[in-house]
Design a protein around this nucleic acid. Structure first.
Length: 503
DNA sequence: CGTATTTGACCCGCGC
DNA sequence: GCGCGGGTCAAATACG
């Protein structure tokens, strides 16, 4: 890691958030907790039900016949209970994961609701001043379905120009193929002789496909460091002078796994060199470190909402200013949703002083770094609606960790009084938010996307190991954990990019 | 010596 | 068809 890199994703950060530990319940829980209670009871019960068992390893010769029989039955019962407990633990683990995802999504929604509420009350500035939360730029990590980036069905038209690539860079080539395939797909639009209905449907599908592949999330942040640590490893593969910006644009590729197509761009703002714009693109095909996992779900949710929710919701279509009315009044810092062609982009402008510097806490806990982006991303995805120019701005300043971290703390610590700034009706707000979430399929879809992103982010890398994945996470998560009901159409797009928001 | 970075060349899409 | 700009490749170079 670059010595000048700003590490917002340190292990302590993640510990503070508690994600990694929370997700990893593993077999420890059942063996230590369930066994003691359930097995004993069940074992006694099963003495009657199961008179025999061939599984016993007790030394039968030492015991009387009755005792042997009893021991066998007891052991069999214990085994059954162990198996049952294991299964139950598996389910509980899945439930916990889902609950965590739901919780995070709820937090995001709550933040948005509170923001809207504050707009009405006109007490935003006071709230901001009171808390002085830190807003630290965090990078978005892509976590979509990696498989989508490797659809073999189009490969015949994808690699038409260049000679076969060297295998040592196969991932890059596949990415290129994928990228060019997208453009190729445009050409393969059904010919004019098709019926109109078919053409429309196909066009819509293809548009969705293209969007899912290229959906972006962008963030601008103040940083003197040349790069922001995001939990992944990157290798620079190019640098270009972009038009209209004296600062070169650097291109990086994820090197945590062979063939990972995720890339990012770094570029400083021409007007303010302290502003670093980072753009992510692509979908990780490997497990992500805990530090990188944090943002994955929210980014995924944002993009998914952008694609599946905002663009299709009646509110979004009929009332393009919905989002603006909701949060725009705090226009100092913006998250921008661009649904304009060719690809939607989530752009977060975190450069405002209120967010990045003025609201800094004396000693911000790492956990507070965890969620501002999450809120912004989720809110962006959920509320963003394209306006006539294809862009919608939402204010990000209220996501500077203020409400969200408050909410997190309020729920994490059993001392609500310590969070007097929180609305007394927090529970009511949560209830309302929950109702809104459950009532809104768009948010549900985004939540599903978040869950899916976690799933995909933990999927073991399929590519053979090479020197590039020397530091990839070795942990794997039982695929049963992935049995979360999601809409694959909605959860796929998890691309994240930084795109310079020229002002 | 292996790995990462640099940098000029190249490819591609798009607009004219 | 041509030029432009964005993006990528890969040989050369730097670095540890």
């Amino acid at each position: 890691m670059d010595m000048h890199e700003v590490d917002f994703f340190s292990a302590e950060t993640m510990k503070a958030v508690g994600r990694a530990e929370t997700f990893d319940l593993g077999p420890k829980v059942p063996t230590s907790c369930i066994k003691k209670e359930d097995l004993t009871i069940a074992g006694l019960n099963l003495l009657i039900a199961n008179a025999r068992s061939d599984l016993s390893t007790v030394d039968d010769a030492v015991l009387p016949a009755e005792d042997r029989k009893e021991s066998k039955s007891e052991l069999a019962a214990m085994r059954d209970e162990l198996a049952r407990a294991k299964e139950e633990n598996q389910k509980l683990r899945e439930m916990l994961n889902q609950a965590i995802s739901n919780y995070n999504a709820l937090q995001m929604h709550l933040t948005a609701l509170r923001q809207h509420h504050d707009v009405v009350d006109g007490r935003v500035e006071a709230t901001n001043d009171e808390h002085g939360e830190v807003l630290v730029p965090r990078q978005f990590m892509d976590l979509g379905l990696a498989g989508d980036a490797d659809e073999p069905s189009h490969s015949s038209t994808a690699t038409r120009d260049r000679p076969s690539p060297p295998l040592d860079n196969g991932g890059v080539r596949s990415m290129d193929s994928q990228r060019r395939k997208t453009s190729t797909d445009k050409v393969i639009v059904p010919p004019p002789d098709h019926q109109n209905t078919n053409r429309e449907e196909t066009s819509t599908e293809q548009a969705h496909e293209a969007i899912k592949r290229k959906a972006r999330v962008s963030v601008r942040a103040r940083s003197d460091a040349p790069m922001i640590a995001d939990g992944c490893q990157w290798r620079k593969y190019g640098q270009k002078m972009a038009k209209g910006n004296p600062c070169p644009r650097a291109y990086y590729r994820c090197t945590m796994a062979a063939g990972c197509p995720v890339r990012k761009q770094l570029q400083r703002c021409a007007d303010d060199r302290s502003i670093l714009t980072t753009t992510y693109e692509g979908t990780h095909n490997h497990p992500l470190p805990a530090a990188a996992m944090a943002m994955a779900s929210t980014t995924s949710a944002a993009v998914s909402m952008l694609l599946s929710g905002s663009m299709s919701s009646p509110e979004g279509l009929m009332n393009p200013s919905f989002l603006a009315r909701t949060v725009l009044p705090f226009s100092s810092s913006m998250a921008t949703i661009s649904a304009s062609a060719p690809f939607p982009t989530v752009m977060l402008d975190l450069t405002h002083r209120q967010d990045a510097t003025q609201l800094r806490r004396p000693s911000p806990s790492p956990a507070q770094f965890q969620f501002p982006f999450a809120a912004a991303a989720a809110a962006a995805g959920y509320f963003a609606v394209p306006n006539a120019s294809g862009q919608t701005h939402i204010n990000q300043s209220r996501f500077s960790g203020l409400q969200l971290s408050e909410a997190m703390e309020a729920s994490e610590f059993p001392h609500p009084k310590e969070h007097t700034a929180l609305p007394s009706s927090l529970a009511d707000t949560v209830t309302a938010a929950t109702a809104a979430i459950t009532a809104d399929p768009n948010f549900t879809a985004a939540l599903a996307a978040a869950i899916s992103s976690i799933i995909n982010g933990n999927r073991p890398a399929t590519a053979s190991d090479n020197h590039d994945n020397r530091s990839s996470a070795s942990r794997t998560i039982n695929e049963d954990d992935n049995n979360v009901t999601t809409n694959s159409e909605d959860i796929n797009p998890t691309n994240t990019n930084f795109t310079a928001t020229k002002e």
